[in-house]
Computed example of a mutant assay.
Amino acid sequence: MTRPTATLLISCPDRQGLVATIANFIYSYGGNIVHADQHTDFERGVFLSRVEWQLDGFNLPREIIAPAFEAIAFPLEANWEVHFSDEIPRLAIWVTQQDHCLLDLLWRQRAKELPAEIPLILSNHETLRPIAERFGIDYHHIPISSQTKAESEARQLDLLQEYNIDLAVLAKYMQILSTDFIDRFPKIINIHHSFLPAFPGARPYHRAHKRGVKIIGATAHYATVDLDEGPIVEQDVVRVSHRDEVADLIRKGKDLERMVLARAVRLHLQHRVLVYGNRTVVFS
């Protein structure tokens, strides 16, 4: 088995000696760093880093690591978090009626490409229940209308808590989450069928075809209160031509959506994404 590791993600105002400060903290307790990366946004004066070290031989119990590091992080005005490789995150996948992203995520999880458990699928339709049953995953159908939105979202939040969900993945969930919902559960990755910021909102392939674009794309981003404007985690594109109809763009786009969403979820699960402002640094 792979030895368990701890991963520190940190961002703070840039200053001299930050790399040494972090490394010395790990070294002082006997830690062996196995991966380290950092980036400085000079325009914004922000330092960002991901450091991973082995827990074998580290002289702090894991429950003491965060309190011990807080004494260092506080004077640095740092935002930070620590994760452990042997703690398996729990995902909820949200869908409407399209199945391509759902099936891809489930297959990758079963193939152990995604280090996560998937105990819950949520949908505003019954259409994809047979897939959940085939994979032995609980499926909750929660219809949503303008009149019932608050009640439906309250039930969704209850389920996220009941199943101890760490990350919600909107795998073609064609509903807009409320500000209150996102404030209460901000760990959400969405897949958008466009290379944002081009063609946000609905029917991007139709608009792209009308515009005569030569490439189409897909974007995975964290959901925020501003529709399709959250911090971008992963993107990709494919070429199209004047011979392609809307149906061709949709077919090619679905392939991109699967790959882009899977890569974004994997990067998040591996704790390789740092958000600052409305931007991300991805330590791949």
Score class of each variant (00 low, 15 high):
76 L>P: 13
231 P>D: 06
21 T>H: 04
187 K>Y: 15
97 Q>N: 09
152 S>I: 04
89 P>G: 05
148 T>H: 08
177 L>I: 01
111 A>T: 11
116 A>Y: 04
228 D>Y: 04
38 Q>G: 01
103 L>Y: 07
113 E>A: 00
210 K>T: 11
241 S>R: 00
191 I>H: 10
274 L>V: 07
203 R>P: 00
263 R>M: 05
55 L>F: 05
136 G>D: 04
35 H>M: 02
65 I>E: 08
162 E>S: 03
179 T>Q: 12
216 I>A: 07
212 G>D: 01
83 H>T: 15
56 D>N: 14
29 Y>T: 02
145 S>I: 05
279 R>L: 08
226 D>V: 01
191 I>S: 10
214 K>Q: 13
73 A>H: 02
268 H>S: 10
193 H>S: 08
269 L>A: 09
161 Q>Y: 06
168 A>T: 12
145 S>K: 12
103 L>N: 07
281 V>E: 04
283 F>A: 09
172 K>L: 09
282 V>L: 00
234 E>W: 02
1 M>V: 05
169 V>R: 06
23 A>H: 10
264 A>N: 11
115 P>H: 14
174 M>D: 14
180 D>T: 14
270 Q>R: 11
118 I>A: 06
176 I>S: 14
6 A>M: 11
169 V>N: 04
166 D>M: 09
260 V>M: 12
41 D>V: 09
256 L>D: 09
133 E>G: 08
142 I>E: 08
147 Q>S: 13
244 D>G: 08
244 D>Q: 06
111 A>E: 15
36 A>T: 04
14 D>T: 06
206 H>Q: 14
169 V>G: 04
231 P>E: 07
102 L>H: 04
10 I>N: 10
276 Y>G: 07
143 P>D: 12
175 Q>C: 04
179 T>S: 12
72 I>G: 06
226 D>W: 02
207 R>Y: 11
64 I>A: 15
87 E>S: 06
220 A>M: 02
194 S>K: 04
111 A>N: 12
49 S>Q: 13
284 S>A: 10
119 P>A: 01
229 E>L: 01
271 H>K: 14
87 E>T: 14
69 F>P: 11
45 G>N: 06
151 E>T: 03
283 F>N: 04
271 H>R: 12
9 L>N: 14
222 Y>Q: 06
258 R>Y: 06
